Simulated scan of single mutants.
Amino acid sequence: MCIDQNSVVQLVNTYAEKFLDISPAVGKPYSEVLHRLRIGGKNDFSQFEEALKGKSQILPDTAEFTTKHGNIPISATLTPLSSNGTIAMTAFIFADNSRNVDRVMEEKAFFSTAAHELRTPLSVIRFAASLLVAKIDTLGPEKIIDHLKKIEKASEQAVDLVNNFLNVSRIDQGRLEVEKTPFDIVALTDEVVSELSDLAKERKLYVHHEISEEHRMVLGDKMKSKEVLTNLISNGIKYTLQGGLTITHQENNRTLVTKMSDTGSGITPASQRLLFRRFMQVGAGRAQSSAKSTGLGLYISKKFAQLMGGDVVLESSKPNKGSTFAFSLPMG
């Protein structure tokens, strides 16, 4: 948009006119054309006045347009244009900055969550280590072993968190690599079920793995597939209060689909569309705030699966009837 020295709009492109929802804009005072512009929540045109005097301006991050659909953040500059040594026009150049703002907000949330989640295991390690240093001469062997086990468990938790954060970073930067080889998905699932059996027993839940002898081989990264299975099966256990989990394998158009169906409380419709986003905690969607989660597991699992030529989807979920997640990979 170009504004003359009389503060009148002389030129506006099609995009700006459509964005501003005012036509025609040419011939009108810029303050009328830009009446929905807010800077810091106010109609503040002081920078426009400075630009008309010949001083280039960059609008602050708080600049936005109000619309019936909500506020739209913008990035914008004001540039005086000279002709024969005098200011003839001022160009107001702006762009929808919604995506950049969302990205910045996600990055802030990422680092904030990383710091918050790491604080807990690091605090446990620090407290247990300090106690051992201060009282090791008076503590008995059992107490010492107990504190060392706490340090070990908290250290494992911290390493898992760091690995998750590194995986997210690699995914976002397109640097995550997968090594595709044929492997037995049924045997791998059985291995994960065995590793999580103690957690299921602790919660008094069953885990039924219906083993298929007909279709077993898939093509993918075995270690990353194990991470996906571990996340999906452990979620099914963590978010189920009664009953348990049933795991099946089915062929579908040259892909092998591993389905995990739990008898949990289900996931609310509002949460389902956000399920695979970063930091979306499944527990919140299942009305189970007691189940702890960083909200990264499903996001990472889906990205892993897609990089291997497959996918992770929520196949079905009904209130008080449980959920079914499906992990698909090409058959090998």
Rank of each mutant, 00 (worst) to 15 (best):
A129F: 13
V162D: 09
P80N: 09
D44F: 08
T90D: 07
S289F: 09
K149C: 12
S212K: 11
A51I: 06
T189D: 08
I211L: 13
D221T: 04
E202T: 02
S31Q: 11
V192L: 04
K68T: 10
G264A: 02
V133Y: 13
G266R: 01
D190E: 15
V168D: 08
G174K: 13
S169D: 14
A129M: 09
S46I: 11
T240D: 05
N252G: 00
H35Q: 10
A305W: 03
V312I: 07
G243N: 12
N71R: 10
K28V: 08
T255G: 05
L307D: 14
E17R: 11
N97F: 11
A128K: 04
T86K: 15
I144P: 03
T90C: 10
R126S: 01
A158L: 05
S46A: 15
A109D: 12
G266N: 06
Q272S: 10
T248P: 02
A291R: 03
V133K: 12
F65H: 01
I211P: 00
F94H: 03
G264I: 00
R277W: 03
D44N: 15
E117I: 06
K55W: 12
D96Q: 05
T294E: 10
E251T: 15
S234V: 01
L232P: 01
F127G: 02
L188D: 06
N167I: 02
N97K: 11
R278P: 01
S261E: 13
S301P: 02
N100S: 12
T77L: 01
K68S: 14
V101Y: 07
P319Q: 08
V9T: 11
K238A: 00
A51W: 14
S261K: 15
T67E: 11
L52I: 04
L232D: 00
V162F: 06
E152V: 01
E195T: 09
T79N: 10
E213G: 08
H147D: 05
R119Q: 07
R119S: 08
I125N: 08
L296W: 00
D172W: 07
T324M: 06
I233T: 04
G236P: 00
D184G: 05
L188F: 03
V104E: 11
V101I: 12
Q157L: 08
S289I: 03
G295V: 05
D96E: 11
V9M: 07
D262A: 00
A158C: 09
E195K: 15
A128P: 07
G332T: 07
S169H: 15
S212E: 13
R103H: 07
